[in-house]
Design a protein around this nucleic acid. Structure first.
Lengths: 163, 163
DNA sequence: CCATAACATGTGTATATACACCTTTCTCGT
DNA sequence: ACGAGAAAGGTGTATATACACATGTTATGG
């Protein structure tokens, strides 16, 4: 037998919200993990965010800012600001293309060298996170995260177009 | 047959780093998810981070700052700054206790009301993320995130004590 | 009782993140 | 060829995050 209709949905229980919220749990995890990776990378003077920019850039030489931001699932203007410290340290180079609106980014020699120096420390941090035999378990989690990115992006554009 | 020993470990392949890095994948996911939740919560004037602070505070009235920060896996000083906008809007109250070093935080009536107004919107966002029948799959992911927090914290203190 | 350590918190600074708005440059229809 | 709109990017502002350092407060050993 069903409840007799027309009850207003009650607000969710705050304890359940705290336990179940996808966003909260992800943010909590990212705080813990970023602190650890950043500590491990500290001798290189690079943060994890900066290393990932260098790594992604090493895979896509001379890419315009907008496409690079999309690839990183990062707001365009966030990428602009994140490049600032790397540019100051001459690890990345930004040049105009023939279409003078576009800016093309690429790694400098110093940038590639800094990345190479940092990779062993990244490997150490990564190994301690995934541990022995963690490959399968982390594989599932990584796939879940990829899926989450897709769903969140679909939901976001649905929410925006449903003005 | 094994390789003849004594090769220096080669640097990891940048493509593998980008694909496998726990920190990078988490941060990417958190960007996408936070954007979606924040968009859904936009009518309330609260961000997801702020809502989670209100929710957590509703579960722990009059808690000192340090303990609250630990519970959220958040740096103490980060919490101080995150409280600022909520305090300005009179959603949380901060008072000294008998031990005059401590600050006790608690929700105001307005804070509780703002939380109650935001919860339905949070529920809508959450439902769209976990989807139909997503409970089990998200359950596994949530457990994985909890585990990641534990491992990252253990690794962090190990790294810090191993000066 | 006082000096010192331990403790709780705030501040200065730097990066990470994204929205709203603006400027510059290109494209395309007429 | 020109003007409207699209496209690429930057800036102003606000929050989120955390480390190094500074301040005030309590506990504690002599």
């Amino acid at each position: 037998m069903e409840t007799t209709c027309a009850q207003a949905a009650p607000n969710p229980d705050p304890a359940a919200v705290a336990r179940l919220c996808v966003c909260f749990n992800l943010r909590k995890a990212v705080r813990a993990v970023t602190q650890f990776y950043d500590t491990m990378l500290e001798p290189t003077g690079l943060r994890t965010t900066q290393l990932t920019v260098l790594v992604a850039l090493s895979l896509a030489q001379r890419i315009p800012l907008r496409r690079f931001a999309e690839r990183l699932v990062m707001d365009r203007t966030t990428l602009t600001r994140n490049l600032r410290p790397l540019e100051r340290r001459r690890l990345v180079r930004i040049e105009r293309g023939p279409d003078r609106r576009q800016r093309f980014m690429s790694l400098t020699g110093a940038g590639r060298a800094a990345m190479e120096r940092a990779l062993p420390l990244w490997q150490a941090a990564q190994s301690r996170m995934v541990g022995r035999g963690g490959a399968e378990r982390w594989g599932a989690l990584g796939a879940g995260l990829d899926e989450i990115v897709t769903i969140a992006q679909q939901n976001l554009s649905a929410a925006k177009s449903a003005v």
